[in-house]
Design a protein around this nucleic acid. Sequence first.
DNA 1: ACAGAAACTGACTACAAGTCAATATATAAA
DNA 2: TTTATATATTGACTTGTAGTCAGTTTCTGT
Lengths: 215, 215
Amino acid sequence: MGIAERQEREKAQKREAIINAAEKIFFAKGYENTTMDEIAEEAEYSKGTIYLYFKNKEDLYLAISARSAEIFYEILKEEIDKGKNGKEKLDGIKKAYLRAFLEHPNHMKAILHASRYPAITDKMLNDEITKLQFQEKQQKLQELILSAITMASEDKSSTELASINKEDLLMTFLGGGILLEGMYKHMFDIKDFCEKYYKIKPEDLIKAAYGLLKF
Amino acid sequence: MGIAERQEREKAQKREAIINAAEKIFFAKGYENTTMDEIAEEAEYSKGTIYLYFKNKEDLYLAISARSAEIFYEILKEEIDKGKNGKEKLDGIKKAYLRAFLEHPNHMKAILHASRYPAITDKMLNDEITKLQFQEKQQKLQELILSAITMASEDKSSTELASINKEDLLMTFLGGGILLEGMYKHMFDIKDFCEKYYKIKPEDLIKAAYGLLKF
DNA sequence: ACAGAAACTGACTACAAGTCAATATATAAA
DNA sequence: TTTATATATTGACTTGTAGTCAGTTTCTGT
């Protein structure tokens, strides 16, 4: 039994090592200009081995995107947790976006770029495990943001926020995510997307998206 | 002289025809899944001919992006012009973004996707003609938005907007453009980008970008 | 020590971007 | 009208890279 566990651990470590090598090359040269041979060389494996751990080039890039999403989530959580009251927590969300882009430009780029590649989107929409992981993260993110909003709207000291509808605010973020190209392929098919993914009426999403551009 | 003019006109028409064919295939199958042979067949030319009109695949896609930017600009102008006062004109900006995404999803996608491809960005940054065209459009867009803001801030009826600093608002849009991935490649290298392109301090841009996420 | 499983390799295949010598067509000159 | 020159077009070819797979090496249990 110990052996099987060790084997699994080693496999995961090798996978990580390949992702590290790939990340290095991808970030330095860009997706299109990176060859699998280069990644293989950097990882000190043959190309065939890379394909034992990842279905194809896009799948490997997806792994980097997933890691990037994790980084963003951690920053978001950290900034929200830092806030002492609702208002501060909401400011934390904005701060997190900016910190993420300034401190981890390549990883944020990876998140935004993931949706470009058909195979990545396909896997996200059709592969059960990937889909579940994605939805789980998505939900954690929503809960985090919603809790900040809830606290802000219950916060007596911030009079202007107290009157704001919680669901509207959440939708603002979801709409914002779509406009920001978030990780979604289907941002463009807004009509379909609303119903399929968020199960809300497009009009409501549009209303929410308007909110994002409010100043 | 008449002949030379006709030749030029025909050349432009052929170019347009190729762009139309390419647009059809790209929008139907996506950039990666489209081959130059397919485009050539749709355009009823040989592949070699396509390369007489466009340097490469990315260059052809850039032409579609440019057309898309034109469409967006027209919608933006239309919605801003529709507004009777400053407040309505500002609302027009938001409406334009949403109309554009709902009515021309593929073209908006083309705008967002252009920055992904190295050769496209390269041409935008290094080819003098492309650069000039891009900056010209950029400026027209800025003027359009700025005029709406100016009018809004001078508008006696909208008390809340009267106090807002014009430059701050403009920067909010520029920052927003960056966050939205606009058409910019260098959105990610924020520090460099601020100084090179807009000649403003990053801190100011960040302040402006915060504004975008304000609710 | 051996058999079978698992991990790994790199030469090979398939496919698509981009090239270019050859060909066809249009224009100008004689 | 004929010929020469310029311009437009072609598609077979070259090149580069993603992805495969038959063969080899290494590990594990008996």
